[in-house]
Simulated scan of single mutants.
Amino acid sequence: MEIKIGVTGWGDHDSLYPERIHSSKKLRQYCNHFPIVEIDSSYYSIMPKSNYQKWVNHTTSDFSFVVKAYGGITGHARQNYSKEEQIKLLKPFLDSIQPLIENNKLKGVLFQFPPWFNCKKENVEFLRTIKNELTSVPAILEFRNQSWFFPQYADQTLSFMSEEGWIHSICDEPQAGMGSIPTVLHPTNKELTLIRFHGRNVYGWNHNGQENWREVRYLYRYNREELCEWVDKLETLSRHTKEVCILFNNNSGGDAANNAKELMKLLGIEFGPSSTEQLELF
């Protein structure tokens, strides 16, 4: 099993960069540390193709991106889109990421659904419709409502994901009631599984809406023991999927990059592009 480890975004991880590096140089430098990154700016708006082309140009040939789907598609937008309007947003979103697809740098599109997207027939059909529109795009699915993994639904949820071709986004996150999901070590795609580390800050997770909630929600540093737990878990996953991509999202306090490197060390993963792939920083 191949394992690739990275973090969400590349701009806020101060430990990775020289003190005075310009923001436009950070992605080039990031490639010297990790082989994959999650683009989350795509969640807030449908960006122009030129943004993605620039990121293609700034990365090494074997680098890859997980792109977080636009929030209007997954029901996060402030606009009250109908389901039909959400589906229509797929086309401009997919058009925008074509440079990643054409340059073989798209690892997958992450569809993260909100806590109010619960397990019911209407939402199952919506997922099926979205997947039918995606054709050859690797589609990753992450829930934020616990009902999908209630005992009476968990097997059906996982079977549905397998049958429809969804890649499972397995989460390490606070166990904080209905708005969180358990860690379910069940790949639904034999080629790829995604794992996202959100931290275990129960207080921050449950205080969505407070003035500083974005600052505290992912404020968490994994200790060595917690990361060691995942060494065995990854061994379990290795029997069922060819590749695992791991993204650390616990960056409210700047901990993601350090935790990612610590897990790489525990797993014996050494990373760094060859001298011919080193990208100029200045």
Rank of each mutant, 00 (worst) to 15 (best):
Ala77Trp: 10
Arg28Asp: 00
Lys88Tyr: 06
His33Gly: 00
Leu16Arg: 07
Ile21Thr: 11
Pro48Asn: 14
Tyr70Gln: 03
Glu38Gly: 01
Leu90Ser: 05
Glu38Met: 04
Leu16Val: 09
Met47Pro: 00
Thr60Pro: 02
Cys31Ser: 05
Met47Cys: 08
Arg78Phe: 11
Lys49Thr: 12
Pro35Glu: 09
Gln29Gly: 04
His76Thr: 03
Phe34Asn: 11
Leu27Ser: 05
Leu89His: 07
Tyr30Arg: 09
Gly75Leu: 04
Phe65Pro: 06
Thr59Gly: 12
His22Ala: 13
Lys26Glu: 04
Lys68Gln: 10
Arg78Asp: 13
Val66Gln: 05
Asp95Pro: 03
His22Gly: 08
Ser96Asn: 00
Glu102Gly: 02
Asn51Trp: 14
His58Asn: 13
Lys68Thr: 07
Val56Gln: 07
Gln29Thr: 07
Glu102Tyr: 06
Glu84Asn: 14
His22Lys: 15
Arg78Met: 12
Asn32Ile: 03
Val37Asp: 07
His22Glu: 12
Asn32Arg: 15
Trp55Glu: 09
His76Ser: 04
Leu100Val: 06
Trp55Met: 15
Lys54Arg: 13
Ile87Ala: 00
Ile21Tyr: 10
Phe34Met: 12
Ser23Lys: 08
Pro18Asn: 11
Lys49Arg: 15
Cys31Lys: 01
Val66Lys: 01
Ile36Val: 15
Gly75Arg: 02
Arg28Phe: 01
Ile101Ser: 02
Ser96Trp: 00
Asn51Leu: 15
Ser50Leu: 09
Leu100Arg: 04
Tyr43Gln: 09
Phe93Lys: 03
Tyr30Phe: 14
Asn32Tyr: 06
Leu94Met: 06
Lys26Ser: 04
His76Pro: 02
Met47Gly: 01
Glu19Tyr: 11
Lys91Gly: 01
Ile101Asp: 01
Glu19Asp: 10
Asn80Tyr: 11
Thr74Leu: 01
Asp62Glu: 12
Pro18Phe: 14
Asp62His: 12
Asp40Pro: 03
Ser61Lys: 13
Glu19Ser: 13
Gln53Arg: 12
Ser64Thr: 10
Lys26Ala: 04
Leu94Thr: 01
Lys83His: 09
Tyr43Pro: 05
Gly71Lys: 10
Met47Ser: 08
Ser64Met: 07
Ile36Asn: 07
Ser23Gly: 01
Leu89Tyr: 03
Thr74Tyr: 01
Thr74Pro: 02
